[in-house]
Design a protein around this nucleic acid. Structure first.
Lengths: 331, 331
DNA sequence: CTGAAAGCGCTTACAG
DNA sequence: CTGAAAGCGCTTACAG
């Protein structure tokens, strides 16, 4: 410490000199390289030297030399509005971190210009929550990324789509079980239905089909003007008694409009939300909704990533254990 | 194309060979390196060869050689709940991209274990929306990052805190202008007040002080049980007539509870929200709230980053042009 | 105007 | 058990 403290970054050469070994040995010790037999005394010497000097490997150099960045890039199609998504990411990050990987999230929008993040990051794996379009696949591959998920060229049994579909399926099941035979799927007009909306709607349609019902129409309501009331009256005239809402905010708007239209909830029309967010319990009447366990889902995600990265075993999780119905007063 | 298509990644050596020049020339052309005089014919040859081969520079190699990653890491203290934040990020990303930088966001939580992202990414700049704690500063510096913002060691006149404080200030001003002299600041009990809540509350306190009022207490309400009503009655007994809500959801809960408690809004008690989200216009009565322009803020952010990265000129934006009052029926 | 060469800080066969 | 050396794919003075 004196004028020697010209902030030059500590390198493995410094650690090697400090510990009296070669750079190779430093690497072996710090990375716990398998197949090397290094006596405990040397190990300790290296570890202590590294700690004393505050050594952090240069990740660019490491990536270049090893050919792996240990970065997992998670591509999000739209802005996730669920608060619980944070718990999902926390858990996923943590689980990946334990295996030495860093999780980076990247929110991609349809209109995005500019260089995609996979070009700047050299990720070992790029994962999307919805399928990539062909342009993106080409772009990802062109950046030297060999692992992506879902991979259009690979018929992989691994599947995380239940993370999206389990909720809508449960919504449909619940309404049917309560005796409703004519359903609609409601979302907001603005912003225009994005991929998560479409994916949830499609899951609801598939479930309705399985249960022998026609697919519920995708109805886009407006929460600003009074058109939601009209829509609800129209639904009633069509014999519809059950509303599957994209999320709890949509559900709340539908419930308010139903009341204004003079309909009783759930007797005249039943409404079920999704996400169990703060809004859900606050309304009068309190909203029936879907709760899912984001932490478990986060671990599922990390396991899938490690499966793709290192071939660890993988087994598709059971959807029914990831999602629960919260029945309150609107169904 | 045939068996030669063994997917080996295209390198600058390939491009150099294809164009009949050296690797140095390839770099100069593709990076538009200033101070090199390269004839248009050579430029075109290189550009065409690169395009034909689908060349993407290896970012790890580039980072290692140049000492710059061209990555800006934005550290978010908590999960941002405002939908408009996406527009902020879009705009910021785009503006940075135009200057050749990639923006990566990193949501950090108090309990986070594991390797921080700045260790894996080698960012040229780390920016936090709230100040870093000393441990983080040490960790960031230890990873060889020389530029961070806010930088505790540097008395920098650059300031983006108006992005947080302008809204609360406007809330306070509006309530005072409407004749309210006794105010509270309301937020949810769960999750416990996080940094954004505290920052907004503090801004409200500062503004109240400037306007000659005592600082509004931070009141934590519960949206599950009926305790919000009790709180409101208590506030009334204390002579409080104005409620500054952390966001529109809090405002909605307060308004509902006030109605249940038999108070008239805004005559007995005025409530102003923040964010102008979808909930705000939906309630009866519609919520007065604060709207801010996320895109402009995104550009402000990008300009600040470029100022720190390349010394571009910077001038603190005028808060009052970034935020507007949306007066509806609760004030 | 262009290229040969050193170097960025690691990892990894390989030889001893 | 350990180290000398090549190499990852770029960038950047520097010499011509």
């Amino acid at each position: 410490m004196s004028e020697a403290t010209v902030r030059r970054r500590v390198t493995s050469t410094d650690v090697a000199r400090e510990a009296g070994v070669s750079r190779a040995t430093v690497t072996y010790v710090l990375n716990d390289t398998p197949g090397q037999t290094i006596p405990q005394s040397t190990r300790t010497r290296v570890l202590e030297a590294a700690a004393r000097l505050g050594y952090r490997p240069n990740s660019a150099a490491r990536t270049l030399a090893s050919g792996r960045s240990r970065i997992v890039l998670l591509v999000l199609p739209d802005w996730p509005q669920e608060f619980s998504f944070r718990h999902f990411l926390d858990e996923a990050s943590l689980a990946l971190d334990e295996s030495g990987y860093s999780l980076v999230t990247y929110t991609r929008h349809p209109g995005t210009r500019g260089r995609p993040l996979w070009e700047a990051l050299n990720p070992d794996l790029v994962i999307g929550l919805v399928p990539f379009d062909p342009d993106d696949v080409a772009s990802i591959r062109g950046c030297g990324v060999t692992r992506l998920f879902p991979d259009p060229d690979e018929s992989d049994s691994a599947d995380l789509s239940m993370a999206v579909s389990a909720g809508p399926e449960l919504q449909v099941d619940h309404l049917i079980d309560r005796g409703h035979r004519r359903l609609v799927y409601a979302t907001f007009k603005e912003p225009p239905p994005y991929s998560l909306v479409l994916a949830r709607h499609r899951a609801a349609c598939d479930r309705a089909y399985t249960r022998g019902l026609p697919p519920p129409d995708l109805e886009r309501i407006d929460h600003q003007d009074g058109s939601t009331e009209e829509a609800i009256r129209r639904w009633r005239d069509m014999g519809i008694t059950g509303v599957i809402a994209f999320n709890d905010i949509v559900a709340a708007v539908v419930v308010v409009a139903a009341a204004t239209a003079g309909l009783r909830v759930p007797d005249d029309i039943a409404v079920i939300g999704h996400d169990d967010n703060q809004t859900a319990a606050m309304f009068v009447p309190q909203l029936s909704t879907i709760r899912f366990d984001p932490s478990t889902l986060g671990r599922d995600f990390a396991n899938l990533a490690l499966h793709k990265l290192e071939g660890r075993p993988w087994q598709n999780p059971d959807a029914s254990t990831r999602v629960t119905l919260v029945r309150r007063r609107t169904t």
